[in-house]
């Protein structure tokens, strides 16, 4: 489907990313996850053809497209903002790509397909409205419809939910994932939110400082981060003697016994449980651990670590 080989991008002397190899299977949603400024947007724009790779080869559907112009690649990029054309109605926006692009359809067929798509995204009643009359989430949905109507081989999404409020972001990303799956769309999705990456994707790729760090299924990356950078960004746990222990192998064991001494920084409430962020001065690390006991801020606690290899269910 998508195959990227040894890709690199430089602006003058500054290397944005290098040695990037990515393969995406048809029908998969793959997330690229990384901190701000690591080159995610640049990579996506190069794949879309809006910027040129300095090195490397890009194949889409087994066809080399490295030197092909953006408008001729079977790829659509959705930007961070919906970028609906403000002077066109929702329906006109949806049709725009079919009308002025490569797909030659009759006027009737264009309208039929666009209206059907607007029904699917539950925006049909809004078809004669202008983008400024829609909420941010509705705009992003129309933007998705406009992209999918072109039946791209690959859909690229650059943090499409980052301008929405947290609540809407949660519901929309699940909706988008289900919709992409239902339509069988292959997608490459960029985000710096690890929860979003885990929710959205079949596989994820962690990137830092312009290099790929690890690739795998979300659970695999979470439980077995390959290096400290991936662990810090993608997982919860402690680094001990060059090994990483996920938070599930840690427990708070009062103030007497236990391996490491820590101080409770603050509680966190999520999904029906209470967690505590604990600072461990001797390791110069912080970790979030679940606990059913009520604890005070500033309280001294000990952290017990379950050694690897011992059974997890005892």
């Amino acid at each position: 489907m998508l195959k990227l080989r040894q890709a690199a991008k430089k602006y003058e002397d500054q290397v944005i990313f290098s040695n990037i190899d990515i393969a995406v299977k048809a029908g998969d949603i793959v997330s690229i996850l990384g901190p701000s400024g690591c080159g995610k947007t640049s990579l996506l724009r190069c794949i879309a053809g809006l910027a040129a790779f300095t090195e490397g080869e890009l194949f889409i559907d087994s066809r080399e497209v490295t030197r092909i112009k953006a408008e001729n690649r079977p790829v659509v990029l959705m930007f961070q903002e919906p970028l609906l054309f403000p002077h066109l109605t929702v329906l006109q926006n949806a049709i725009y790509g079919m009308k002025h692009g490569k797909r030659k359809l009759s006027r009737k067929e264009r309208i039929r397909q666009a209206e059907e798509m607007l029904k699917k995204i539950e925006m049909f009643e809004w078809k004669d409205r202008y983008p400024s009359q829609l909420s941010g989430g509705q705009q992003q949905r129309v933007s998705l419809a406009r992209a999918l109507l072109l039946q791209p081989s690959l859909l690229l999404l650059d943090e499409p939910f980052s301008s929405l409020d947290a609540h809407l972001r949660h519901s929309l990303r699940i909706w988008v994932r289900d919709f992409l799956k239902q339509e069988g769309v292959t997608a490459l999705f960029v985000t710096h939110d690890r929860e979003e990456a885990a929710v959205m994707s079949d596989r994820l790729i962690v990137m830092k400082d312009g290099k790929l760090q690890q690739e795998g299924e979300p659970r695999e990356v979470y439980e077995q981060p390959l290096n400290k950078d991936v662990a810090d960004f993608m997982s919860d746990g402690l680094h001990l003697d060059g090994e990483f222990y996920t938070a599930s192998s840690l427990s708070i064991s009062g103030s007497q016994a236990g391996t490491y001494q820590g101080i409770i920084e603050h509680p966190l409430f999520a999904y029906g449980y209470t967690f505590y962020r604990i600072k461990i001065p001797e390791l110069e690390q912080s970790v979030v651990v679940r606990s059913d006991e009520v604890r005070e801020e500033g309280q001294q606690v000990s952290i017990a670590v379950q050694q690897k290899g011992s059974a997890a269910d005892d």
């Binding site: 809006l50 408008e71 002025h100």
Partner: peptide, 25 residues
């Protein structure tokens, strides 16, 4: 500049991007 980029990635010609996206703005 993202407006024209958005139009191009949708697959329209430069002319369409100019006359339909930029010109009204």
């Amino acid at each position: 500049p993202d407006w024209v980029k958005q139009s191009r990635t949708i697959g329209t010609s430069q002319a369409a991007a100019f006359f339909i996206v930029l010109l009204p703005m």
